[in-house]
Amino acid sequence: MSYAYLFKYIIIGDTGVGKSCLLLQFTDKRFQHVHDLTIGVEFGSRMVSINDRQIKLQIWDTAGQESFRSITRSYYRGAAGALLVYDITRRETFEHLSSWLEDARQHANPNMTIMLIGNKSDVAHKRQVSREEGEEFAREHGLVFLETSAKTSDNVEEAFINTASVICEKIDDGLDVSNESHGIKVGYGAGGTGANQGGFVNPGAAPRVGGGGGAAGQCC
């Protein structure tokens, strides 16, 4: 299928906050109460439509345990968007946000869009972090904020799609899509009907168009 852009995402946050469940809900539209622990990284992808433009999201879901940090750091590079997730029912996962953010600032490209996610909004009776605190943290650090429930799917679409919208705006404002470290790739079929019409393409960039357009349909 043709698409205008491919965005790379990374999902980060403490272990057990629901990173894999968010990904599964987004890619497969289902919730798995128990699933195997993520070791290293897992992967998912889905096509979304932003302003009538097809965007492919390629999502890296990482292991949250401290010892895996050095492994997951290598995935920050070349990510256009990050979902930084905490669990609203476990205060410590909120308190660790600064250290995650520090990691992201250090290893990601400075243009990476970060969405702060307070997950498990369906278990509000066990809440330990108020929505206001989440909003405040996001405002302070220049992040976009949402509370989600991977279980009920509340706000899950929005979390991924709003991040993509912000990235699209950045491209509109002239973010260099030819720079690979920005985590954006001009997609197949973008030449004729895609990006060029929407003004997404940076005039200075040299998008890779053509060649792949026809082949994409046959491949895989």
Binding site: F43, Q58, G187, C219, C220
Partner: peptide, 14 residues
């Protein structure tokens, strides 16, 4: 290798 040609390397690799 074929997956890589159409940005589907990971979909194939997993």
């Amino acid at each position: 290798v074929e997956g890589g040609r159409c940005d589907r390397l990971m979909e194939c690799a997993v």
